[in-house]
Design a binder for these strands. Sequence first.
DNA 1: CCAGTATCCTGCAGGC
DNA 2: TGCCTGCAGGATACTG
Length: 272
Amino acid sequence: MPELPEVESVRRSLERAIVERRVEELWSSGLAMRRVPEPKALREALLQQRFLRPERRGKYLQLWLGSGDCLLVHLGMSGRLLVQDSSSELVAHTHLRLRLDDEQELRLIDPRRFGFYDLLPRGQHDPSLEALGLEPLAPDFGQRFVQVMRQRERPVRSLLLDQHVIAGLGNIYVAEALWRAKVHPRSMASSLSERRLRRLAKEIRAVLDDALAASGTTLRDYRSPDGLPGYFAVSLAVYGREGLPCTRCESGIQRVQDAGRSSFFCPHCQRS
DNA sequence: CCAGTATCCTGCAGGC
DNA sequence: TGCCTGCAGGATACTG
């Protein structure tokens, strides 16, 4: 579900809502997620701790605490982080509740449970975080992107989706960036000219910036911690638009299965 | 190294 | 109305 713009929107919202707040009580569902910490260790690490400024790397959120420990969160496909009045009604599939010192509660909701939350003790590095590739919002992204892509003998879409190569893109924004750059998803990355790769890097940045300005894309689950949806869905050019006319050339948008997932593109204006 | 498939889990839309 | 199938914004562990 959430890709970089959604996770970054969540981070910004949390920066307003939880920084300086102290955890006064916590509760967890006990249900398995992709990763879940020891309840006892979690309690010891979080109780009476204050949140510092949260950070994001790729699709991962790092909720730093005053102690130097970190609550690492990934939203998977259907995860939400909400900050709500602690007396407000709970929704189904709530897995973690942190009551804060302002009568608000940070709640992690995730129906599919492909997401996770985990404790990262001070000074300890998480392997999946360490293995992440380029950060698309970093200033030197464009330059490094061209270098990385040129040496890979793989279809460009599969590379863009690979978090070890580029961190933060998912199925929506990969499709949108490729359409904007007029690159066919099955093109071999190494066969694209430097000029086209620079263009692709530029369009990746542009689509992420545009989505971020709209607070992300809400298809069904996504909400920012204040409960608001993202508004970028209306701006999608190809994702989820199978059979509809391309807004550039009127050709029908195609959907194919690649790497087990739907790939949307315009067969006319996206070339190898 | 790479592609493809299966897996975790719930919810929803569409066809019958 | 209900039942069944396929699909969904992700990541990882297998196989060949």
